[in-house]
Amino acid sequence: MFGPFKPSNVLLGGLLWKIPWRMSPNQKYRQRRRLKAVDQVIATVDEGLKSKGMTSKLLDRLKAEVPLESEMLPRDKYTTFSRQEKGYRIGLHRVQKWTRKTIRVNPKGF
């Protein structure tokens, strides 16, 4: 019953992966850092084009649609919409490739 062979969910049930329902404080910290990095890229590109008196369609769209990290609610920073889930929210860390995606706004009404 004790020691290395004590029964646990992993040993008895075979493959068991668990993703915690919420992020750890460190995951949230790194997520904020990534959000700020993306904000920084958009701001720098905007600054560069502005200095030449130009703009780009995608840049205008991002500036209009993507909220800054400082403007976002914690709810939107760390969780996202999911139509499968009860309550329609899941942790952002359950989204595939979530560290390399920009998921900031919710569908209308959510």
């Binding site: 890229v41 590109v45 560069g48 780009s56 995608l58 840049l59 991002l62 560290t99």
Partner: peptide
């Protein structure tokens, strides 16, 4: 600029 923004992450 547009191409850079496509890979902004």
């Amino acid at each position: 600029a547009t191409q850079i923004l496509r890979v902004k992450e």
